[in-house]
Write a protein that binds this DNA or RNA. Sequence first.
DNA 1: CAACGTTCGTGATAGCCTCTAACTAAATTT
DNA 2: AAATTTAGTTAGAGGCTATCACGAACGTTG
Lengths: 230, 230
Amino acid sequence: MADTGTATPRERYRAQVRAEIKEHAWRQIATTGASALSLNAIAKQMGMSGPALYRYYANRDELITELIRDAYRSLADTLRTAAEEAAGKNGGTSSEEGGGLAVLAHAVRSWALRDPQRYLLIYGTPVPGYHAPDDITAISSQIMTLLLDAGSATPPEQPEQPASLLERHLADHGDWAAGHPAPPAVLHQALSFWTRVHGVLSLELAGHFTGMGFDPALLFAAEVDDLLAR
Amino acid sequence: MADTGTATPRERYRAQVRAEIKEHAWRQIATTGASALSLNAIAKQMGMSGPALYRYYANRDELITELIRDAYRSLADTLRTAAEEAAGKNGGTSSEEGGGLAVLAHAVRSWALRDPQRYLLIYGTPVPGYHAPDDITAISSQIMTLLLDAGSATPPEQPEQPASLLERHLADHGDWAAGHPAPPAVLHQALSFWTRVHGVLSLELAGHFTGMGFDPALLFAAEVDDLLAR
DNA sequence: CAACGTTCGTGATAGCCTCTAACTAAATTT
DNA sequence: AAATTTAGTTAGAGGCTATCACGAACGTTG
């Protein structure tokens, strides 16, 4: 992650300390959540006094932004490799219905369950003032492209369905697809994929299903199945 | 909201100050979000010194819990009246398909858009340590009951659909429905309603659609329509 | 009415936090 | 070897939650 192979020893040291700070930050976030992240506590854990940390990150926001960036990158990488594996396995002919998107859905879920706070850092409640820098929105559009690719490989089942109100709207307002040549039905499918996956996942991670006694995995699968069988 | 009609004048004064504190809290939350809510700042806005506030709320958590309670109550009331109006209008015979749930979906969305932070206070990223008291989970199960009632009034369209894996699971693990006599298909529909509405809404409120150029209302409507036309 | 107990608000204080400033020590460059 | 850049320190301003001890207002009761 940090390019420790090149450049001056000073830069290598700096990169290593920055990485170590992030490690402590992730550990702290995993237990207390991002809102309670404390630069002071991280510094003490690393054996140095509070203000020293500001040599490496200008302020708390900059550290959190870096964490968000890494989280997005990790999710994008996870989905990319999942999509490649799925494409390699059945070599172009999809033996299972909409296999690409189903695999991606499962990949998102296991990635989120592995570290819930990392998922919530990206898709959870935002801090009202905060606005993500451009390179982060670029990564998030890479994720969207992966969804559109997977959706294009196996277009929606039901043929000749009349275009819905939303799809007619998307025909004119689909510029967000970064020039992806997907038809409105695929755009619609990608958006639904996103919102449904997030809908089940975020409620599950927030603990709204605990005590209800059913298995969230089955609800998740049902939502994805319904999307693919449309 | 505060019962100012009865009891001693001291209790009335106390209830009024508590209400005023909550008003300032809501105003603050609306702009800065719940995580940045400051008892100190509220006290200063009310012209009294910081510690005075602790006469009325034992700590920050207690105030936030009260706000969450009020938010849940407000949402439950909104949905209840929406359901009653919908039931009264077409007098039992549903002229429109699944009218009850569609009306409820619209009611949730407009309620959330009216005060996004109030929605996120309930369904947003939770504080890892926090656990809601029992009376709050009771209100949230009232909301679930409303969904189940609406879903029972107009059962899913497609007749004779074989029970899915999830629905067979819900037949055994549906005790969360508070003794509601709804069949598994209706339980499934209510859960999907919840997750889909939340999926679109939370991403919209978090600003993840801004800059994409399409109208979230149409995506929301499409998701709900798809649920009802299943 | 007067005495009493309860309740409200105050300032002081402890202990967190973010972040700035001034200064020392070490490492790198010239 | 000297000059410069960088890393770390302590001190401190200003914010926060929360507790404590005290005086002042209030309602109740003899």
